[in-house]
Design a protein around this nucleic acid. Structure first.
Lengths: 290, 290
DNA sequence: CAAATAGTGTCTCTAAGACAATATCAC
DNA sequence: GTGATATTGTCTTAGAGACACTATTTG
C-alpha cells in the first residue's frame, strides 16, 4: 500500500509549533469526545454476458453486485455488502480498497466514495458509521470471488425497476432472491436519501446503500469515461454500448452511440472474427490530454 | 431537532432476532475495534453585493465563505472552517446542521455532504475524520455571524483563480489575507483530491476542504435549482444571474440566461423601482412537480 | 436627453435522436 | 442466400450562445 495522496505532515513541519502548543498536544486527551466505530461498505459492480440460444446473436448482459453472506451475528445468514472496520493506520479510501482486494483478490481500477450512513440505530452493535463506496471490477475470467473473510461471497444479478421515486430492487443468484423496496426522498436537510420500505434477506441498511450506489452509478455512466472499467483493454464498440445499456436498462441506437464515444476511443487494426457476421474492429481507450 | 429520515429500527423490529443473537449483542464489545474521532466541517457560502460608485449601475457581487479564528491549540489563531465533533445521539447530517446553526444563528435551507477527509496525520491531536459539507446561507440583513462557539467568526471574500488543475485561492476580510495553493489530482484509487501545495493562515487541511467545496459548488450551480438558496423569496432575474456569475466567475448574456431559467420561475406583479432605469419585475421560484 | 437595466426576437452552431442504407462474415 | 452485426450517412429537432433591437425609468 502506497502512502496517502498528499502529506499534510509536510505542511505541519513548515509551521512553527510553539512550546505551548507542544505541551497542549502532549496532554490532549482524545477520549474526551465520543468516538464511534467507522467502517466501509463497498458496492462492487461487474457486467457479465448471458448465454443466448442463437449462435450468431449478440449475448445480453447483466449488471452484477457482490454480496457476502454473514457468518456471525448480528444479521447472521443475511447477505451484506463486503466491507469492514477502519484500522488505525489507514485512510477511509485505503480501508475500502483493502477490503475489496481481500474479498475479490482483484485490484479495482477505481473506487468512489458515495456517501456516509450514520443514522443512530443503524447497527444493533452500537454506533457504527459506514462510508459507502462503489467500485467497478472487470471480471475477465469470471473467477473472482471467495476471499478469506466471509463465509460465502457471490455475484447477484441486479433487477431494478424505478417508478417515480420508488426503487423495486431484486438481487438474484440461482435460487437465492433478495428483495427491497426503496423510496428516494429528501430529508429535512435537503439531502437525498433512500428510505427502506421493505428489505428481505439484506443485512442492516445495506439495501439503502445499494440504492444510493445504483443511483450514483447511473449518473456516472453518462460520462462514458467509466464504461471502460468494465471491459478488457481491447473491446468492440458494441460491447461498450452494451455496458451503458445494461446499467441504464435502456436500448441505444448504435449509430448515435458510436458517434458519441468516438472522441474517447482509438481504433486498432485487430478484428473479432468467427461471429457469423461482419467482423468488428477492436478499439482501445484514448488517453485524453485534458 | 427532528428525528432521522427513516427509522431503521422499524426494520429491525420486523426481523425475528434469535435468543442466540440477543446474547451475542449483549456481550458485544464495541471497544474491540479501533475508533477514531469524527467531526464535521462546513463550508458555508453566501453572496454579498459590493457597493459601486455609480448610483444607477448594478452592484457587483462576491462569494463569501464563513471562517472562524481558532481560540485553542492546535493551530491557535489560524482560521478554520466552522465545525465540531459528532455527538453520540446525532447523525453526521444533524451534527453539521447543528454546528451551522450554533455558528450563524441561521437555519440553512440545505446542506450537502461533499467528502470525507481521513488521511492519517491530518490532525496533530490524533485520528480525526472530517466529514465535509457545503451549505448555502441567505444573509438577508448581513447580520449573521458570531455564534457562541468561536472566538471570532467572519465572512471572507473568495478570490479563486483556476489554471489547469491548480487552484490559486485567496480569502480576504479587511486586512486579513489567507492564501492557499492547491492542486487537483487523482490519487492511486482514482479519487479526485486536492493536494495542498501552500497554505498560509488556514488551519489543518481546511484549504483542501475549501477547494473541494468550491469545486462542488461550481458543478452544482449549473443546475439552477440551487441558485435560489442565495436569494430572498422574491428576486429579479438579474440578481439570479449575478449569483451564477459570481460563483462561476464568468459573465453571462442576460437574454440566454433569462430563457434558461424561465421554466424554474414564476412572475409576480411586483416591480423594483427607483433604480434609475426600467423597473425589473420580481419573480418567485416555481415549485416543480418533477 | 443620457445612462443604465429590462425585456424580446432572431440567427447560427452543435449535439442528440431517429432512421435509412450499405458492408461483411459464417453457416 | 440468409441472418446477424458493423459501419457510414443524413435528416430533424432542441438547446446554447451571440447579438441586435426596443422599452422604461430617473438624475
Amino acid at each position: 500500500m502506497k502512502n496517502s495522496t498528499y502529506s499534510i505532515r509536510d505542511l505541519y513541519e513548515k509551521r512553527i509549533v510553539s512550546d505551548e502548543e507542544k505541551s497542549f498536544l502532549a496532554e490532549y486527551d482524545i477520549n474526551q469526545y465520543f468516538r464511534p466505530s467507522v467502517s466501509t461498505d463497498i458496492a462492487a459492480f461487474t457486467i457479465k454476458n448471458k448465454n443466448e440460444e442463437n449462435y450468431r446473436k449478440e449475448e445480453k448482459a447483466s449488471l452484477l453486485i457482490l454480496m457476502v453472506k454473514r457468518g456471525t451475528h448480528p444479521f447472521k445468514d443475511y447477505w451484506a455488502l463486503p466491507g469492514g472496520f477502519l484500522r488505525e493506520d489507514e485512510s477511509i479510501e485505503e480501508c475500502a480498497y483493502r477490503e475489496i482486494v481481500e474479498e475479490t483478490n482483484i485490484k479495482p481500477i477505481s473506487i468512489k466514495h458515495i456517501g456516509v450512513f450514520s443514522e443512530v440505530g443503524r447497527d444493533p452493535r452500537g454506533r457504527i458509521i459506514s462510508n459507502a463506496f462503489t467500485s467497478i471490477i472487470y471480471d475477465g475470467e469470471g473467477e473472482i470471488i471467495s476471499g478469506d473473510d466471509a463465509d460465502d461471497a457471490r455475484w447477484f444479478e441486479i433487477i431494478l425497476e424505478v417508478r417515480d421515486d420508488v426503487y423495486y430492487l431484486s438481487l438474484k443468484n440461482g435460487d437465492i432472491l433478495l428483495e427491497a423496496l426503496l423510496k428516494e426522498s429528501k430529508n429535512e436537510f435537503g439531502i437525498k436519501r433512500f428510505e427502506i420500505i421493505e428489505s428481505e434477506g439484506i443485512a442492516f441498511d445495506h439495501a439503502a446503500i445499494i440504492g444510493s450506489a445504483l443511483s450514483s452509478l447511473r449518473k456516472d455512466v453518462l460520462d462514458l469515461e467509466m464504461l471502460f472499467d468494465f471491459l478488457p483493454e481491447k473491446f468492440t464498440l458494441l460491447s461498450l454500448q452494451r455496458v451503458q445499456e445494461t446499467i441504464l436498462d435502456k436500448e441505444l441506437l448504435t449509430a448515435n452511440f458510436r458517434r458519441k464515444v468516438m472522441p474517447y476511443v482509438e481504433e486498432t487494426d485487430e478484428y473479432v472474427t468467427g461471429a457469423g457476421h461482419r467482423p468488428a474492429k477492436l478499439f482501445v481507450r484514448k488517453e485524453l490530454s485534458e
